[in-house]
Each structure stands twice: as C-alpha cells, then as structure tokens.
C-alpha cells in the first residue's frame, strides 16, 4: 500500500502532506526534513527510487519526481510496483494540471484543500482508486459544483474562499 504522499518545494517547505498510516505530527515533520535532506543532495542523473527503510520500516521505498520547483514524493511498501507508482504520479500531476490549468506551486499552496480533494479521488486509504485522470477531474468538478451550488448553504462562497481560488 501507499504510505504517504508528500509535495514539497525545493526549499523543503511542505506543500501537501498526506500520511495513510498515522504518524504523530512531530514524526511527520521529521520525516519531511529527512526526505528533503536525501532529495536535495541527489544528483540529477540518478534513479527516482530511494530506500526508506529507516523511516517507514522494512521494504519501504520512496519514489520522487521533480516538476519545476516541486518534489512529488510517494512512499510505499513492497506490494506496489515502483514503475507503476511513477505513472501514478504522472496521472496525479496531469490531473492537477487539468484542474488548475497549468498548475504551479502557488496553486497548490493556496488551494491545498482542493489538492487534497483531488488526491482523495485518486488514492483512498493507501490504495489507488482511479487512474483515469478525466474521471478524477469529473468527480472533482462535481464536488466543486456542489459547493458552489446556491442550494447548499449560503456561507459556502465566503468560507472556502481558499479553494474557489482563482
């Protein structure tokens, strides 16, 4: 199963943190820092896989991919296929791209809870729900529509200003 999905920028600032097995907050921060320590010192022409045994236990691995200023990181155990996880990240990023039309770091910062919603449509409880990015986009749009729907409570538009965003 997938243990965690993390997005951080090239300064080590977390932009999205989602753990599928609970970690206390201090531990989460420690993990983020240690991952950053590993990633920022990695050369460019090397594989995208890192062993994460020390933080997540036996046989866990970490796949990362860089997109512009962001590291996308997925941590998973040996029941997952590393190469498939790379594709999964590609799907996730493509979906973000469709939802935010040309996603950039700022989109993710200011709409972090929409990003969470997107992620929840792709991964649930550490398992992949959907790999078809247009299905995901559709579900996410339905949810956004429901939030903006005047039939739902009026407070909506004010309150989640963060994620109606742009």
């Amino acid at each position: 199963m997938i243990r965690a999905v993390i997005i951080m920028n090239d300064q080590g600032k977390p932009r999205l943190v989602k753990f599928y097995d609970h970690q206390p907050m201090e531990k989460q921060q420690e993990i983020i820092r240690s991952i950053y320590g590993v990633l920022c010192s990695r050369a460019e022409n090397v594989s995208n896989f890192v062993h994460a045994d020390s933080t997540f236990g036996q046989d866990t691995r970490l796949v990362y991919k860089t997109f512009a200023t962001l590291y996308f990181i997925v941590i998973f155990d040996d029941s997952e296929n590393e190469l498939a996880i790379l594709d999964l990240m590609q799907v996730f990023v493509e979906t973000l791209d469709k939802c935010f039309s040309n996603v950039c770091e700022l989109d993710i910062i200011f709409n972090f809870n929409k990003v969470h919603t997107i992620l929840d449509e792709i991964i649930l409880g550490g398992q992949v729900v959907e790999m078809n990015s247009s299905d995901v986009v559709k579900a996410v749009n339905d949810i956004s529509g429901l939030e903006k729907n005047p039939n739902s409570i009026l407070r909506v538009s004010k309150s989640i200003s963060g994620w109606q965003g742009r």
Binding site: P14, E26, N113
Partner: peptide
C-alpha cells in the same frame, strides 16, 4: 458557527507546517 470551516481549513494549513 460562521467561520468554523474557514478556521478548520486554516488549521489544516497550520498543521501541515508542523
């Protein structure tokens, strides 16, 4: 009641920062 979900959204951001 009015700002509860906005406050919670903020807390999630704050939580992410540790």
């Amino acid at each position: 009641n009015d700002y509860r979900h906005r406050n919670l959204a903020k807390l999630m951001f704050i939580h992410m920062l540790g």
